[in-house]
Amino acid sequence: MSAQAILYEGSEEAQEALNAIQTYKSPIDPSIKVILLFKAVGNAPVMKQTKYKIKAGRTFGHVLHLLRGLLNFKPEDTLVTYINQSFSPTPDDVVSNLFKMFATEGYLIVNYSTTPAWG
């Protein structure tokens, strides 16, 4: 990305804009964490520990990976997840965005099921 800066010798404003973009692109501070609250739906196995702290910059795909590990699910096992019993995010949704938009009393509630639960 630093190579881009060289390309813009001519315009001071374009340079300022590129610098601004670099600032906004800087990764989310890894010390910032949010708490996920996993809730089983239907026949899904219930976990002893349901609250997990996770770096806010992680993607929802990482959450799926984490949850599969916690549940000892094999790759072929179906795992369906919902936020607030409502919708399934895409794996590239960033946890910090989901938390900002949908957190409930300090938790991002992730419902999980072995079959589609909410239509």
Binding site: G61, S86, F87, S88, T90
Partner: peptide, 29 residues
């Protein structure tokens, strides 16, 4: 690529996005 290239998984993602947008608008789906 995150999702399989099938139209079916694209549809599921689309419906998920539609509901997520609805939740942001109204607080429910």
């Amino acid at each position: 690529l995150l999702l399989s290239p099938s139209a079916e998984s694209c549809k599921q993602a689309f419906m998920g996005q539609l509901k997520e947008a609805d939740f942001i608008r109204w607080g429910n789906t």
